[in-house]
Design a binder for these strands. Structure first.
Length: 981
RNA sequence: GGGCGAGUGGCGGAAUGGUAGACGCGCCUGCCUUAGGAGCAGGUCCUUUCGAGGGUGGAGGUUCAAGUCCUCUCUCGCCCACCA
């Protein structure tokens, strides 16, 4: 027989399989489907890595197994082809990224095919091809039309040397991944996807999918749900309130008298005007009255109810001084709904210069009662909009705020700092507040804060800090006290200082915290540094009299656990968990859930990506590109040199367009999309890759999705997998899918390290090239070796020397073909091994335990080696078990038998339970838990017979000498333990 | 600082709470061979007075029985890092 020559047989079968379309998914089949997917690769110029081989082989084994088990398998491959490396290469060499990418794809294709992976090449896709990114752009518009894509100014990572924005993942320890320049923050207009809207769904969906627990935990942490409360801390600054009542009302009616009293009791001055002719009002006359009566200044807060709002707005329009704040309580303006209001009011037409009003007011708040019978939500929205007011929906005691007491009005009338806390139970211990440097309240305090210069300087410095500076400074906290203004702890009524410090993040919660130094380590550290008082309000629930020494030891530490409340007024003795809601309610706070998850920034100032399909028109604003005009192609007349602007902006052919709505001159959005957008939906495209009308038809989606097995690296535990889940949630919500999780079962392959235990990297020169291994040993050996290295999910070092073991195993298998005979008797012993092998390989593939499956195949091969002859029937069982692991050699040997069809479409062997069970079994006999001997007994031997047999053994007798048997433990098939005393 | 995971021969690694080290690499002895990075047979955790004793990072504990479960601790790896 010829020697095993992998090169020859692998080339042969690779071609055969391709010619016969062996691995193409069957569109017409009635068999149950299974979708086995690899994370599609970025086709880098370096070619395939042995890490790719590991993951691809694992999923290939699984796909082949399922095919043999009678499933109609979809196992596709494609290219995540947009991205920075090709563009960076273009900057250096002026070679167009399309060219380098296509070349890399060609190389990847050759390499992947050489590995004998059973991909359906007829469905190959590339994200950089117009027929693909047409639909990436469609997805952008789909999200945009559903209010899930929006543009806003945002802080982004900016590399001053590369002159470009970097993705978070391109910033390593505050440095640009590419040129190691310190990254700075910059404000830029960016497109976002509203993934935060799906935070709760993304969290809940994790419950029902078969993913590694660590990956789920990682996603949970990334979403970062915390439940807590929002609590308002009134700012202790004295204001002058002007209350304006509404139609047919007066300062003696509704909430006005009560509110006046409440505000005055807090030390504010209140002027409640009686507007003239309230029963039959003329707004102009009322405005005149207000202007005559009131002196406006920067400490003035105008609170206007209902029709009073029109009076207030018109009055403020002409004051010429900036007042502190304007609050509308179910207010309306006459020109936002003239038809409705004119019948009550004489003054018409009514016009107001809202820009002037905005100019004259620090901030505007609009309170809207959700059960209002008079001012509906649309009116509230419109009114808020024209004035740029912050609209807050609350529930009035009585519709349209006409109760004698309206607590919500008081709450919002008082200037306050809203904080988010997960520990409202510690409120009594809050001894100061901290605002993030970006907190909006700061601007309004310019006149009040005595050390404004110092504060301003700190804020500027904090905003200018780079990532690196922040990490460098480590835990050392800095901050500045706001002199001359204090806040009131709503629980204790005590005044507490306010600080601005950058250890509070503006993007999380409300951008302000209540600091409880006794029970939060960060606050404690800050309080120590700035000498702020520390007040203990929670104690450990254990007995306080005992272990005093332990308490002493802990004296400098912060108790941040839940416990029992002390020094908390009527809440003393309550447990933290109960106290949370109780105290929040006591001070009028609201329980609230917050997430760390941020909206997804998708803009990239880069060339090699899918252009964002938006057009900006002077007249019409941002206009989506009509679907019929998709795809928006990448222009070729660009210079890749980075200048800080997307290279697309400099392409005239790309940039200058006509507005699709008005036909006027307009410009195209010049940013491209994050490549993660392309990879968030590609698994749908594989179901229907050549569809020109849709990203994929509902029929094909229903046929193939969701993905049954998703295989890929653990480096994608968060971003890609979260984004893909987000896309699927949105599609589900809009009726495109009947499932809402794209990947039912997820497995990761571990890293393959270099033989020195370090990461493989070009710079270290320790990279193993799969081509060389295939050249020397063959693809089957490479596959078998990688699967035999260890558990698929752990990282493990490459060892050149060990590869030979896999090769020897395959050579041994190869040699057995000579001994195959058609006649032979079934040997009982071998039959047992064979059936045990079927059982173990089957369950091991199901459990992704490929290393132990191969171990069992080796045991079986070693047994065959010892045999004179192998029955053809048994041989074919073995080859089928080997086929998923080493597809080429299995196919070659299979065709050496009378079988006509490929081994890869043969049916998976079933094992015979009777043959797997052992007749006789050698079990250990222990004395006091130590093994002293073994006995061979039948599976159904009773305890007393087993004991009798064990007592015959001299080594057992020796250990029992002079002792009495207390009891025996007998586990059939496992062990007999004799306990003596 | 937080989260997750892992520590078993010279090496990669096996072990539903039940004979620790399967399988493979390497190494040792022998056979075969013109040769071998080939093949075959046997051996390979440590100590040993050959009876046995010890052994899964360390210290305790639960159990008839622990690599496996519990508590504490050390070391390494990965991820997130002031998230209130």
């Amino acid at each position: 027989m010829e020697a095993y020559n992998p090169k020859k047989i692998e080339e042969k079968w690779q071609k055969e399989w391709e010619d016969s379309s062996l691995y193409e998914a069957d569109e017409k089949s009635k068999k149950p489907k299974s979708y086995v997917l690899d994370m599609f690769p970025y086709p880098s110029g370096d070619g395939l890595h042995v890490g790719h081989v590991e993951g691809y082989t694992a999923s290939d084994i699984y796909a082949r197994f399922l095919r043999m088990k009678g499933k109609n398998v979809l196992h596709p491959i494609g290219w995540d082809a947009f991205g920075l490396p090709a563009e960076n290469y273009a900057i250096k060499t002026k070679v167009h990224p399309r060219e380098t990418t296509e070349k890399a794809i060609e190389n990847f294709t050759r390499q992947i095919k050489s590995l004998g992976l059973s991909y359906d090449w007829s469905r190959e896709i590339g994200t950089h091809r117009p027929e693909y990114f047409k639909w990436t752009q469609w997805f952008f518009l789909f999200l945009y039309k559903n209010g899930l894509a929006y543009k806003k100014k945002a802080k982004v990572n900016w590399c001053p040397s590369c002159q470009t924005v970097l993705a978070n993942e391109q910033v390593v320890n505050g440095l640009c991944e590419r040129c190691k320049t310190e990254v700075v923050q910059k404000d830029l207009e960016q497109w976002f996807f509203k993934i935060t809207e799906y935070a709760e769904q993304l969290l809940n969906g994790l419950e029902k999918i078969d993913w590694p627990e660590s990956t789920k935990t990682h996603q949970r942490n990334w979403i970062g749900k915390s439940e807590g409360a929002e609590i308002d801390f009134p700012v202790d600054k004295k204001y002058h309130y002007v209350l304006l009542h509404g139609y047919k009302s007066s300062p003696k009616m509704n909430f006005h008298p009560w509110l006046k009293k409440e505000l005055e009791s807090r030390g504010h001055t209140v002027e409640a005007l009686e507007l003239p002719n309230s029963q039959d009002p003329d707004v102009a006359e009322q405005v005149e009255y207000v202007l005559k009566k009131v002196t406006f200044d920067e400490n003035t807060i105008v609170l206007a109810h209902s029709l009073g709002s029109a009076v207030a707005a018109k009055a403020i329009e002409s004051t010429g001084v900036k007042i502190h704040k304007l609050i509308f309580v179910s207010g309306f303006l006459l020109d936002t709904d003239p038809n409705r209001v004119e019948k009550y009011v004489k003054t018409a037409p009514f016009t107001c210069d809202y820009e002037k009003v905005k100019e004259n007011v620090g901030s505007i708040l609009y309170l809207y009662d959700k059960n209002d019978a008079f001012v509906d939500e649309n009116m509230a929205k419109r009114t808020s909009e024209v004035l740029g007011a912050e609209m807050v929906q609350v529930e009035a005691k009585q519709s349209h705020f006409v109760a004698k007491e309206e607590p919500e009005v008081l709450k919002y009338a008082i200037e306050s700092v809203r904080v988010f806390t997960t520990r409202p139970d510690t409120l009594f211990g809050a001894t100061y507040l901290v605002l993030a440097p970006e907190h909006p309240l700061l601007a309004g305090l310019k006149e009040t804060v005595q050390n404004w210069k110092e504060v301003e300087k700190y804020v500027e410095m904090a905003k200018g800090k780079t990532e690196l500076e922040r990490t460098k400074e480590g835990k050392e906290k800095t901050g500045v006290k706001l002199e001359g203004v204090e806040a009131k702890n709503p629980a204790t009524g005590e005044n507490i200082p306010i600080y601005v410090a950058d250890y509070v993040l503006s993007q999380y919660g409300t951008g302000a915290i209540m600091a409880v130094p006794a029970h939060d380590e960060r606050d404690f550290e800050f309080a120590q540094k700035y000498d702020i008082s520390v007040k203990t309000v929670v104690e450990a629930p254990e007995d306080r009299t005992e272990n005093a020494s332990k308490d002493e030891k802990k004296i400098s530490e912060v108790y941040s656990e839940p416990g029992v409340l002390v020094h908390s007024g009527k809440f003393d003795g309550m447990k933290s968990e109960e106290a949370k809601a109780a105290i929040a309610e006591f001070v009028g706070g609201k329980m609230k859930t917050t997430y760390k998850l941020r909206d997804w920034l998708v803009s990239r100032q880069r060339y090699w990506g899918a252009p964002i399909p938006i057009i900006y028109c002077e007249k019409c604003g941002a206009v989506p590109v009509p679907e019929k005009d998709l795809p928006v192609l990448l222009p070729d007349d660009v210079d890749f040199m980075p200048t800080g602007e997307s290279p697309l902006a400099k392409s005239k052919t790309f940039h200058d367009v006509i507005c699709p709505e008005c036909g006027g001159a307009a410009r195209r959005e010049s940013d491209t999309m994050d490549t993660f957008v392309c990879s968030s939906w590609y698994y749908y495209r594989f179901a229907d890759p050549r569809n020109e009308k849709e990203f994929a038809s509902k029929k094909e989606i229903k046929k193939w999705l969701p993905v049954d097995l998703y295989m890929g690296g653990a480096e994608h535990t968060v971003l890609h997998l979260l984004y893909a889940r987000f896309f699927t949630k949105v599609l589900h919500e809009h009726g495109y899918t009947d499932f809402d999780e794209p990947f039912q079962k997820l497995r990761h392959q571990g890293l393959i390290l270099a033989d020195d235990g370090r990461k493989m990297s070009k710079s270290l020169g320790n990279v193993v090239n799969p081509d060389e291994v295939v050249g020397t040993y063959g693809a089957d050996t490479l596959r078998t070796y990688e699967m035999f290295m260890g558990p698929i999910e752990v990282s493990k070092p490459w060892n050149d020397g060990n590869i030979i073991g896999a090769r020897r195993f395959l050579e041994r298998v190869w040699r057995q073909a000579e001994k195959v005979t058609d006649t032979g008797e079934e040997g009982e012993e071998f039959s047992q091994i064979l059936h045990r092998t079927i059982k173990k390989v089957t369950s091991d593939i199901e459990n992704f335990s490929f290393n132990t499956a191969i171990s069992q195949l080796m045991i079986c091969a070693n047994t065959m080696e010892q045999m004179e002859a192998i029955r053809s029937e048994d041989w074919r069982v073995f080859l089928r078990l080997l086929a998923p692991f080493a597809p080429f050699i299995s196919e070659e040997l299979w065709r050496g038998t009378p079988e006509m069809d490929s081994v890869h479409v043969a049916s998976w062997p079933e094992y015979d339970e009777a043959k797997v069970r052992e007749e006789k079994r050698r079990i250990a006999v222990q004395v006091n838990g130590k093994v002293r001997g073994t006995i061979e007994i039948d599976g159904d031997t009773e305890e007393k017979d087993a004991l009798e047999q064990a007592l015959q053994l001299p080594e057992i007798q020796r250990h029992l000498e002079g002792k009495t048997v207390k009891k025996t433990i007998f586990v059939p098939g496992k062990i007999l333990n004799i306990v003596v005393g």
